[in-house]
């Protein structure tokens, strides 16, 4: 994740510096189409959403599209190269905001970043049980594949999917309680790391299918 994801600046200019109309969105003035840099703006604010784990993906997409329609370099009539650059950067940021907020894990990680403390990537400790369990699963998958045992392979993958779903549910539960205390944030970091283990296993399987 890029470093700018977690640098959150809450304050927005309330009025457009150009036409003095109220700014309804930090990225662009709805009245005179002046585009603003949004490097430090919180992704929820950027898309006009309440800062909370539970979001409606449809609303995220709607807000995203209406904002992109205004700011996207294809759409904005930029008079100068500087404005064109700004439109590009702001659109890139909006794209990133949508991707982060639509993904349940990235969204949890983003909220975790807002709550402060180290990021999930900084947290190296994954519980021994989980490590052993996922190693065993991986081995079993490889053996089943080598033996062309479709039945065992399918049931292993089913197990991985089940574990993935369980951890994801726990991540959601924890993310809803943010900022919480350090124990909660620690557990959230660990769980987010565990999810990436399972995701990698499922991805590798898909790539294996292909080759």
């Amino acid at each position: 994740m890029s470093t700018s994801d977690n640098a959150v600046k809450p304050s927005l200019p309330a009025k457009c510096v150009k036409c003095r109309h109220d700014l309804k969105n930090p990225a662009i003035c709805g009245h005179c189409q002046t585009v603003y840099p949004v490097d430090g703006v919180n992704y929820f604010d950027l898309l006009g959403l309440e800062t909370t784990y539970d979001i409606d993906p449809r609303i995220v997409r709607e807000r995203y599209v209406s904002l992109a329609r205004a700011v996207h370099p294809d759409r904005l009539r930029a008079d100068t190269p500087e404005v064109e650059q700004l439109s590009l950067r702001t659109t890139a940021q909006i794209n990133r905001a949508r991707d982060v907020l639509l993904d349940p894990v990235m969204r949890a990680e983003y909220l975790l970043g807002m709550a402060g403390g180290p990021s999930a990537a900084d947290e190296k400790s994954v519980s021994q049980d989980v490590l052993m369990d996922s190693l065993a699963l991986r081995e079993e998958i490889e053996e089943a594949r080598a033996a062309n045992d479709a039945g065992t392979l399918a049931s292993c993958l089913e197990t991985v999917r089940g574990r993935h779903a369980d951890v994801l549910a726990r991540v959601a539960e924890l993310a809803r309680q943010l900022p919480g205390d350090e124990d909660l944030r620690h557990e959230l970091r660990v769980r987010i790391n565990v999810i990436s283990y399972y995701r990698k296993m499922l991805e590798q399987d898909a790539e294996h299918e292909e080759s």
Partner: peptide, 8 residues
């Protein structure tokens, strides 16, 4: 990833 996109 949807373009334009950036990373630092």
């Amino acid at each position: 990833t949807t373009i334009p996109c950036r990373a630092t």
